[in-house]
Design a protein around this nucleic acid. Structure first.
Lengths: 125, 125
DNA sequence: CAGCATCCCGCGGGATACTG
DNA sequence: CAGTATCCCGCGGGATGCTG
């Protein structure tokens, strides 16, 4: 997404954000991890539908971006905890704005879609 | 992205937002169209790197979601203008928060990445 | 428990060519 | 000018199985 550097992507670092947050599961994980240190299996349960593979990959990505801290307790069986960093917490805060927008307009958008679809399919195709 | 309805996606309409805004070009187009009614070819130039195909597809999607209004002037040659709707304008406003976050922390994130990569590649692999 | 490795498939999206 | 249509490929991500 940030491969081609265009004037717009330069002026618009939103693209960068989306890169960190992209993928089907990043945000879900961030939100799920927001309520405190959380273990791998906890996340696997809370972020419903995620596969073990994608959980691992996404956690690594978030850790690499400095959004998550991974703490390993060398016990048997192993215990690993993930914690949001400060900037990740800020990010989650910021996402609340988006949430509000979505909640506020979800009805409007749904209606717009139906209108559009009805218009484009007048007869019962 | 919103196919499987999980407890989290229910409680977290961010997923919905991202669905409207998903894709490589949606946000770029919204931003480019924010400065007033804009024509197809204008967008093609301003959103650098976009193909005609993806421009069309993304415009249709945004129109369907009620984020963009498409106005056709039946002249020769044809003239088509795209305008942000109110909710799209609100959305763009909201995205500013994300922008700020990105600008504020881009350095930190870049550093985190380098640290992570260095750690995982100690010798000169 | 918390992973990593492998196989596999769908679809987002690029390149290209044609049209009202 | 503003699209549509077709072909094609990479990669995000699901399923499954193995390990320290």
């Amino acid at each position: 997404m940030a491969d081609t550097v265009s004037p717009i992507t330069e002026a618009c670092p939103i693209v960068e954000v989306l890169d960190h947050v992209a993928g089907k599961w990043s945000i879900g994980i961030l939100v799920a991890a927001a309520h405190g240190p959380v273990r791998f299996t906890e996340l696997e349960r809370e972020v419903e539908g995620i596969s073990r593979r994608m959980l691992t990959l996404t956690l690594r990505k978030l850790e690499r971006d400095g959004l998550l801290v991974r703490t390993v307790y060398p016990t048997v069986p192993p215990r690993v905890e993930y914690t949001l960093t400060g900037i990740a917490r800020e990010l989650v805060q910021t996402l609340v704005g988006l949430t509000s927008w979505a909640e506020k307009h979800r009805g409007t958008i749904a209606a717009a879609r139906r209108a559009y679809d009805t218009q484009r399919t007048p007869a019962g195709v």
